[in-house]
């Protein structure tokens, strides 16, 4: 579904991504893990077209590198950024409405689905998004992207700064998403939920992929965890 080959990216003169290659299959949950500064967020931003890509990015068999972000999104690639980017002055309902793409007809998810999944959002439907709690904003951000009916959703650090019981809900939501046939690329710093729900895991370090395997293989590989993940 998504295939990245030898991807490079630069911020000014800094060479951030130095030949990243990986793939996500249809309906798969794949995690991209690594310490701060390893290049995980840059990888998704580059796929999304926010950072200029050098290399090949294929989505559903077609090259998308070089396209404008909104055109990439319209092809069915969803993105939930690390800082959630809730539109603060708009209500929860309006935030969700903005997830629906121009000209979109239906999709896997309705507003009612979102409210059923998170009754909190229904209760606060007419509240400005800016006053929600961190957990609520995270849910809203993911739900908003789902409203656009992506076939692959890339979620950057959804558990960051959340309480353990909220993290469990995020984890449940990711499994619900996968159950409807949406592939997930999960970006995480810690192994918190990644190992429990992922089919496959990539570990990043210094702008490269340094490990590629199943969750079980990473569990068994203490050397990789020590060198690239543990603080």
């Amino acid at each position: 579904m998504l295939e990245v080959r030898d991807l490079h990216a630069y911020y000014g003169k800094s060479h951030i991504l130095q030949g990243v290659s990986f793939r996500v299959g249809a309906g798969e949950i794949v995690s991209l893990i690594g310490r701060n500064g390893a290049g995980r967020s840059t990888t998704v931003k580059t796929i999304m077209g926010e950072v200029a890509p050098v290399g090949a990015i294929e989505f559903k068999g077609e090259r998308i590198d070089g396209l404008a972000p909104h055109l990439i999104a319209r092809r069915g690639l969803g993105y939930v950024p690390e800082n959630r980017d809730i539109f603060p002055t708009l209500t929860v309902r309006e935030n969700l409405a903005l997830g629906v793409k121009p000209g979109q007809q239906g999709g896997r998810w309705s507003l009612e689905d979102m409210f059923t999944l998170f009754p909190n959002l229904r209760d606060r439907a007419d509240t400005p998004g800016g006053v929600l709690s961190g957990g609520e904003q995270q849910m809203l951000s993911i739900c908003r992207t789902l409203m656009g009916d992506p076939e692959l959703i890339m979620i950057d650090e959804p558990t960051e700064g959340l309480a353990p019981q909220v993290i469990a809900r995020v984890s449940d939501l990711l499994e619900t998403i996968a159950a409807r046939g949406v592939a997930i690329l999960l970006i995480e710093q810690k192994l918190t939920i990644a190992l429990e729900i992922s089919h496959r895991v990539y570990v990043m370090g210094h702008g490269r992929i340094v490990f590629d395997g199943t969750a079980q293989q990473l569990r068994d590989n203490a050397a990789v965890r020590r060198e690239w993940l543990e603080v």
């Binding site: 999304m48 926010e50 404008a68 972000p69 909104h70 969803g78 980017d85 539109f87 002055t89």
Partner: peptide
């Protein structure tokens, strides 16, 4: 709505498929 969204987080509005 799209204009207001693009005023606060332009790149997010793009990522949702709006022609910012």
């Amino acid at each position: 709505l799209v204009i207001q969204a693009a005023l606060s987080h332009p790149s997010m509005a793009s990522a949702l498929g709006h022609d910012v």
